[in-house]
Design a protein around this nucleic acid. Structure first.
Lengths: 213, 213
DNA sequence: TAGATTGTTAATCGATTAACAATC
DNA sequence: TAGATTGTTAATCGATTAACAATC
């Protein structure tokens, strides 16, 4: 009964990249690929690809390789992309608006259902057919519509209480764009996008490359 | 002479987080902290903090701990935040506009100097005092103004040639928001922000947490 | 001085790579 | 069948944690 598991985050974070490359191959009409061919394209070792995939099962065929379409579908299942997710955006400032205008998330089953803000100037505004609502209405909305994911694009000071509320209302995931580390019950999954960290890392890389000459 | 180096990216990517926590402590007026106090706040081991810092030198004092202000400044130097960086945004769609409106980057020395797009409807538009310019004018602009960093927020198909041009014009870093892996001469440093990857990872975490119950 | 906490070495743990037997 | 390539075990490498001597 006891499923051996606990796959490392390092592996998981490589899956979207495999998924992307396989999608591109699919578009090009390539129907089979070996781990070594893929490794060359992706600049990783063939060994790593096989190890990564074999965490989830044997998707290939000895002597042949991997069927691109099949592997692509399997990875999408592993990542949970065969599901649909209902999302809301909390904080409709610049970044929130930008994400609201993205339509590519919907292709993968991430459906935007609501927009919320405290700012009266924004409330009532419409983005891609959705009206920005007062954040006071969020509790009822989340509960009634069974929202899965909240995109947090609000000022860092306001994030903590909002996240805690959302957690208590049964949200499953938070996509957090604020420079705050959230400590929440483990019923809620948090994925952080720390843009400032990323930019600082770029600064380091630039500095470091100069020093190497 | 031979400086022993090559610090792993794992270490580097933790530095901005240390930097952030130290900044918060500074705001609170805390002037000293031990690795174990910091480790508790940050949810990492004290040992890791000391190891990480000692890659760059001894910033603490036995029996005392670390001076918050000093350590904060030192980390900022390590990351290269004591420098100024001139940036441009290439692709002034939703995300490009959102980033253009961010003012917090400037506080750390990242100065936005120009905006570029191909879309005639966007050209001439003004964001925070900067006019969107035709991408044709980018070469001269980058060279004349010694631009350090280009923020790439353009459609994935257009990224590759633009990145290659920028590289040849002497840009030092690319902050790439498109789902493309760039292969460029090592004079150019690339930092990717793959939002779609991040969202897929969140989907996995949600799926995985459900399965665990 | 005694107590505290660093800097650093050594031990452990995990992740990546290499190798090869299994098998299509 | 022979050739190719996977799945998987074993070897290596690197990163994290533990331990403790140095020292403030």
């Amino acid at each position: 009964m006891a499923e051996e598991r606990k796959i490392s985050m390092a592996v998981i974070r490589r899956l979207p990249r495999y998924y992307r490359y396989l999608g591109e191959l699919l578009e090009k009409g390539v129907d089979k690929i070996s781990s070594s061919q893929l490794s060359e394209r992706m600049n990783v070792t063939a060994s790593q690809i096989r190890q990564d995939l074999n965490n989830f099962g044997g998707f290939g065929q000895q002597g042949y390789g991997y069927n691109v379409d099949y592997l692509h579908k399997e990875i999408s299942k592993i990542l949970g992309l065969d599901q649909n997710y209902k999302m809301i955006i909390v904080g409709v400032g610049n970044l929130g608006q930008a994400l609201a205008n993205y339509n590519s998330f919907e292709k993968r089953g991430f459906k935007l259902e609501g927009l919320f803000d405290v700012n009266p100037r924004l409330i009532g505004m419409s983005i891609r057919g959705l009206e920005v609502q007062d954040i006071d209405k969020m509790e009822i909305f989340v509960k009634e519509n069974n929202i899965d994911i909240a995109i947090l694009t609000l000022p860092r000071i306001r994030v903590k209480p909002v996240a805690e509320n959302l957690a208590s209302w049964g949200i499953k995931g938070l996509w957090n764009f604020s420079a705050v580390d959230l400590k929440l019950p483990e019923t809620v999954q948090v994925e952080n996008v720390h843009l400032s960290h990323s930019l600082m890392t770029l600064a380091y890389k630039i500095k470091d490359s100069k020093e190497e000459q």
